[in-house]
């Protein structure tokens, strides 16, 4: 059982305050959706949790099972059990997913002896063309292929808590369904906890949230059950901004 606990988190980018006191707790096996209008701070939240350069935390804390995540460099946040699925996965020319995962497993003290079969079984689960797996990371991949590649990595690395930053952006319905189902399955098979940041409800048709939060102007302004997503689908964000 793991717990990601965010308390009073404030952060700024280039001197501008974006997060203004976020409180949130995600436990193993739970799916939390964070929804909100553009500019609410959704992507900033994922960047700050993972330690992306350019963001400054001004107050608050983030802990994973009591460990101060904000005190760790990015790579140790990942080996501690956090995994970020990026909205726009970066192209890394000449670096292949298997080389990268070999190093990522090694940093976790795990063997990569069965990596090839893990990759092919994960690729099969999300209908990811095995030929594409052999390309350089995210180079010449479509939006959907990039998200399948991100999901494949999550499947192999088995984090405790996954942060999905707009998994549903830039991909077609089939890819969205394949990726969302795989993450949903991980919540049952591996007790994965999920923080799913999204603008749209369609992701949540396959990835069933336990809790839905509305983030607006850097604060969580409402928290409720899955019915809140339906309400947003009907009425939009107007009531919260």
């Amino acid at each position: 059982m793991s717990t990601l606990k965010i308390e009073g988190l404030c952060a700024e980018v280039a001197g501008k305050e974006i997060l203004r006191g976020i409180n949130l707790t995600v436990n193993s096996g739970e799916v939390h959706a964070i929804m909100g209008p553009n500019g609410a701070g959704k992507s900033t939240l994922s960047a700050v949790i993972m330690g992306k350069p350019g963001y400054t935390v001004t107050a608050g804390s983030v802990t994973l099972d009591g460990v101060d995540i904000l005190a760790l460099p990015t790579w140790k946040r990942a080996t501690a059990g956090l995994h970020l699925v990026m909205q726009y996965p970066t192209e890394v020319p000449g670096v292949h997913v298997d080389e990268m995962l070999t190093e990522a497993l090694s940093a976790r003290g795990r063997s990569s002896a069965d990596l090839a079969s893990r990759i092919s079984s994960e690729a099969g689960r999300i209908n990811f063309d095995a030929e594409l797996v052999s390309r350089a990371l995210n180079v010449d991949l479509s939006g959907g292929e990039k998200k399948r590649n991100e999901t494949l990595q999550l499947g192999v690395l088995e984090p405790k808590i996954a942060i999905l930053d707009e998994l549903d952006s830039g991909l077609d319905i089939d890819a969205l369904r394949d990726c969302a189902r795989r993450v949903e399955a991980a919540t049952h098979e591996n007790n994965l906890g999920v923080l799913a940041i999204t603008h749209y409800v369609r992701l949540l048709e396959e990835l069933k949230p336990d809790v839905v939060h509305i983030l607006a102007a850097g604060r969580i302004v409402k928290t409720a059950g899955p019915e809140l997503a339906d309400e947003l689908e009907r009425d939009g964000y107007a009531a919260f901004v």
Binding site: T74, W75, A78, V92
Partner: peptide, 14 residues
């Protein structure tokens, strides 16, 4: 920097 962050966010040391 984005390539560096991408790899480090997978748990790879700098």
């Amino acid at each position: 920097e984005d390539q560096r962050f991408y790899l480090e966010s997978r748990g790879i040391p700098p």
